[in-house]
Write a protein that binds this DNA or RNA. Structure first.
Lengths: 341, 341
DNA sequence: TACCGTTTCCAAAGCGCTTTGGAAAAGACA
DNA sequence: TGTCTTTTCCAAAGCGCTTTGGAAACGGTA
């Protein structure tokens, strides 16, 4: 069933049927209803490729990933992708993924030249972002999940990563903690750098010098959380509080504490940033984990909406979101142990 | 730069240029070269959507996944997807993913009606596969990763899951083990059922009755591997060998053994099926893990090729692959402990 | 030279939709 | 009643490609 035969069935022109289905006001409400009724009974759906050719828009959002750095194995990225994908299908956009064993940039170049996608999403940005420059050169619309220094010039969604560690550090300091360690994400990523700064500044504001022994950084896996925590908690001058860049990492830290017989909430306080990935529920942990919370899935959903608006021509300045995670206090945080004050 | 202007530049017709670029023999080699040369210098790439409309083929492979059962968090699925995606881009196919919060079937219906994808890939099949019937009804080409009872009627790629557990069980029995437990994948999945049968039959062939206490099944996570192994190894009549459905699970089992102080390779032998997911390298484990090996990434790559051939019209009968994993013997397996014989 | 089979090219139609630029019909107003 | 808007519809062009069905040019053969 195509437009032509549907139009014939209805005794209308293709124009009218097309415009009716797309909700134009220059076709009367009565026929608009009649048409959409008929479309439903005949099971008509406009052929996307014809539409794409005619409009020049594909309604496809692209994501590139190099297979060597397995982003897809990162539950955080997946959670984001899930939100993006969910919202995209609600908005009738499609998601196209493309991998290359070689350079991620080749993928963008292909996307741009072939016209397969309208817009691409950039994730996991680090400071030296040539990808952004390339996309700007290629004139390929994009939205960044995260930010770089040049973020004025593009559309992005990010959370206040500085605050993500600044707030809890301040809180812990006010509670009397002064030996606060951080288990951070990958050191090159902008979000990790922002968090590091938040931690450092909060300490300095209180006159505490950040202790390099208390800093660890790497992929936000359970394993790293465990390893990092094991290392730090066995220092002779061990910290009284741990900041983790993700709940997944915190789970590893919990495991380390349990193994070392260190009581969480009294002997050591733990705070993490909570992206709300399904297999790592902060509230279900024992003790429940104090977090700064900002569901990644929501960010994914939001970026789908932003993509749509971007393509509708909304100004870039209105497509720059900065979210402030909320701090949720739970039992994993308590006063520092006496012995350490 | 489009076909028309490229043709003008060359002083040729669109037809000739098009056919030259697509390598038809009815345009002389000389002009064929001249054309592709020009295409390169002008940076011409045919517009995919126009091509799609003209040919009726989209060269897009679809994958649907319901967001509630988070397939994407399963490293096995991701590994498969990575292979698929890699090979697809080599073959100039694209991968479209689509999620729905509701029914996976809606996604297929949308795919079919809109004509976005040429073919879909089905994963994680279980015995009662209505998805397969739906796709057949919709007349939407598909390839299954795995098999069901009706697999004669469609194209698939699968491994000999029966053998995956039958072989090592036989081997263990021959070495003198008779208390062999299995930590299986999700009990509804066909592959898990096949493996279960392989194990059972191997035991029965030797006159050993499968012990229901020795059977566990669930998602193939490290966590489950740990939990299942902990349970089984603390039985009063504990097994001398463990069959794990994946290396990820085996890692959990290793952790349990370490925690319980049970020596792997002497006090308990462990075999796993190795999908070769990057974060779980059987050979790097301590002791190195004996496995039946069949890289999932290879399956992904193969399925991309099969998809292409399917769309080229290759007969279904020639697109039914059954791979036989190789058994790789390593230190995690040894003779059963004396005490148990 | 005439004829025929090959080789090489091309004009034009078509894929299924959107959109432009009216035209006809209906309604409003004097 | 006639004129001017407004509403409602449509014919036709176009998106950029592939493909069909020749036609022209060429070379070989009789």
């Amino acid at each position: 069933m195509n437009l032509k035969s549907l139009a014939n069935h209805l005794g209308l022109s293709q124009t009218t049927v097309s415009r009716a289905l797309n909700g134009y006001s220059d076709v009367s409400l009565a026929t608009r209803n009649r048409v959409s009724e008929a479309a439903k009974t005949y099971g008509y759906r406009p052929n996307v490729n014809a539409r794409r050719l005619a409009t020049g828009r594909s309604c496809v959002i692209g994501i590139a990933f190099p297979t060597d750095m397995n982003m897809f194995l990162d539950p955080h990225f997946i959670e984001f992708l899930t939100g993006l994908s969910e919202k995209a299908s609600e908005l009738d956009y499609d998601i196209m993924i493309s991998s290359s064993q070689s350079e991620e940039e080749d993928v963008y170049r292909r996307f741009a030249e072939k016209g397969t996608v309208d817009l691409v999403i950039l994730s996991n940005v680090d400071l030296s972002e040539e990808r952004i420059r390339l996309l700007q050169d290629l004139n390929m619309p994009f939205i960044v999940h995260g930010r770089t220094a040049t973020c004025d010039s593009y559309s992005y969604i990010d959370i206040d990563n500085y605050g993500v560690f600044h707030e809890p550090t301040k809180m812990l300091l006010e509670m009397g903690h002064d030996k606060i360690a951080i288990l951070n994400g990958h050191p090159n990523r902008v979000y990790a750098i922002d968090r590091l700064n938040g931690w450092q500044d909060a300490l300095k504001e209180r006159g505490v010098t950040p202790n390099p022994d208390y800093m660890r950084a790497g992929a936000m896996s359970e394993e790293n959380g465990y390893t990092f925590a094991m290392g730090i908690l066995q220092l002779e001058n061990r910290p009284t509080a741990l900041l983790c860049s993700s709940v997944v990492m915190a789970k590893g830290a919990y495991r380390a504490c349990n193994e070392l017989g260190i009581k969480i909430g009294s002997e050591v306080s733990i705070v993490a940033h909570d992206d709300n990935v399904p297999l790592a529920q902060a509230s279900d942990m024992n003790p429940p984990l104090t977090v700064t919370r900002s569901p990644l899935r929501d960010a994914g959903r939001e970026i789908a909406i932003m993509a749509m608006n971007y393509l509708k021509g909304t100004d870039i300045k209105e497509l720059q979101c900065l979210w402030h995670p909320e701090l949720i206090f739970r039992k994993s945080v308590g006063a520092p142990p006496r012995s350490s004050t």
